[in-house]
Design a protein around this nucleic acid. Structure first.
Lengths: 185, 185
DNA sequence: CACACATTAGACCATTTGGTCTATAAACGA
DNA sequence: TCGTTTATAGACCAAATGGTCTAATGTGTG
């Protein structure tokens, strides 16, 4: 029976729940009920238990975000436009949901003091995103690509927190409008 | 015996722990042990239990941040300088700690799906901060004070998340440097 | 001293937590 | 068909969870 099918279902379900209520706010019971799978499946696919599942779920969502950012910038004619497109994509991803999900990394961040393994994961995903943005900035000939990438990442994170708090994509649209108004580098 | 003394100790202890590990990541046992107080004290001062304590702790920390922002801008000669000072103040507050604490609002945000009372608190604190920043922007004659306030708040939130993730004040310093370089409004 | 009130102290409870373990069932090659 | 592997199924466990409740202990006032 397709090994990876239920494994993926666990990852997707866990990612959704963790991003809604945070690592510590979700119990295995809730994940298993939502995925309609028994505990045995979880510990077969993830012998490391909750931490390993959260790690996999966060990396999966992190890769998805990275791919989305890549698409936004590939379709753009400038770094600035890429940023605008990223805002709109994140807003679009947030809006149809019944719950606007938090940044996947944020959802495990508060668990890192107790679970050191997750700290490394969080840092790696952030580094991946920033590196991707820096590559795009370089491609568009931005003056200081590293600085531009960090700056955009920071603003996206801020917008994401506010969007999550307000359960609305408005913050992303606001940031998009702001980026549009800025002088073209 | 000074009623408010132990009540304050609970608030301070809870705020520190919640900001380090998040609302759901901290148990009452841990808070009570850290504050060296019995459970009876907690439920005497906060009949609403964990939620009421978290609410009080978050509002207390939220007021502290608001006051700090006020001071930064009162000492500044421009809105831009106020932003720079705020970054540096947040960095300074983060650096001596053994654990760089998260934004107090973020620490309860992930609990809001299960605890609706905390959602209102979170929104009120954010509104208070933004309103304070908007007042300052207006005072300095910034073009669109509301937009300037939202924009700065967003960037501070982003920096705060990255500072928490990296357990370092570097993100705040980075944002300060970035603000300094921007054209004076 | 006596009285009322404010506060502390922690035993106790039902529920939930993450995790382990054994038994079963399906899949598949020999 | 047999045997092995892969995966599901869920009973079970110790520990921790938030919360309630009753005693006891101040503490100040008449």
């Amino acid at each position: 029976m397709s090994s990876s099918e239920n494994r993926d279902k666990l990852i997707r379900t866990a990612s959704r729940l963790f991003r809604s209520k945070g690592y510590a706010g979700v119990g295995l019971k809730e994940i298993l009920e939502a995925a309609d799978l028994p505990k045995g499946s979880l510990y077969y696919h993830f012998p490391g238990g909750k931490v390993e599942l959260a790690d996999a779920a966060t990396r999966w969502a992190g890769d998805w975000v990275a791919a989305m950012l890549g698409q936004c910038f590939d379709q753009a004619a400038s770094f600035k436009e890429g940023g605008v497109r990223a805002c709109e994509a994140l807003a679009a991803a947030a809006e149809p949901q019944s719950c606007v999900p938090a940044c996947p990394v944020v959802s495990i961040l508060q668990a890192t003091p107790s679970e050191p393994a997750l700290r490394k994961t969080a840092q790696e995903i952030y580094d991946m995103w920033t590196a991707g943005l820096a590559r795009q900035a370089e491609r568009f000939g931005v003056d200081d690509p590293q600085q531009a990438a960090l700056s955009l990442h920071m603003r996206l994170q801020g917008a994401w927190i506010l969007a999550y708090a307000q359960q609305s994509g408005a913050a992303f649209h606001h940031l998009a409008a702001e980026l549009r108004k800025e002088t073209v580098g």
